[in-house]
Amino acid sequence: MSESLIKNHNERLKGLIRKRRFWNIFLSIGILLGLIFSSKIIDINASRLLSGLPRLGDYVAQILPSLETNSLFLDSKTEGSISYWYFNLPKYLHLLFETFNMALVATIIGSSIALFLSFFAAKNTAPNSLIYFITRRTLEFFRGVPEIIFAILFVWALGIGPIAGIIAMMLHTTGSLGKLFSEVHENSDVRPREALKASGGNWFSEMKFGLLPQVLPNLISYILLRFEINIRASTILGFVGAGGIGQELYLVINFNYYEEVSAIIFLIILTVISIDILSGYLRKNIIEAE
């Protein structure tokens, strides 16, 4: 009896090991083939990488500021001080403020449109399947196209400036939040809505009293997350002329104003991280308060 048990167990173990081994080999061969194939396509090789590395080192050394400890806190006329490095700070802060506002406006408008559309994109709230299908495909298109592609298009149509960036981010926000919101709707409890329906509520009151109170914390948390993403996006949309600090960064990188590059990048990192922390804190509180 016990012998057959052990035998059985051993058989199973062997089977598991065989399966595991098959997957390991399958994955390794796949990765190896992929590596060979893709390095051939983009013509990458060790000598190119090695010859580039010192240049990268040089570049990093150039963009880092030459701070000197004994003149660190002197005025902006002295080389080696922080204020010499950040002599353009007022301009940067102005641009950062613009970047921040671009992200905020795009998030507000985009999430409002997304909320409106999400009712038509969720299976359990859409009035009929045709509208459901059309809304879904539209949202897919808006989140499938990278926002910077939209930005190029709108810069061409509306001219250089933050408005193009805002509209580009807004479209992308609508696309991705619309999908997320509709999934939240689909996962919501149907009983409050049924109760409202049974007591004679119409579609609107069903949504307002039966659906929204359950899903609102989730929606807000998604909006905050999207705001973080938009802050990041708004720092780069300037590369194609759509406003914000990215425009200045693109300029200083291309004109080789070396120390300004690191000055701006540090500011961007500081902004992104502090917004992330703030919004992470808010999100945690909202979900815990639920």
Binding site: Y59, R232, A233, F239
Partner: peptide, 15 residues
Amino acid sequence: GVDILIWALIFVRAF
């Protein structure tokens, strides 16, 4: 904290 596009811009300058 640095967006991928900024990294790309830096690497394009270097490589």
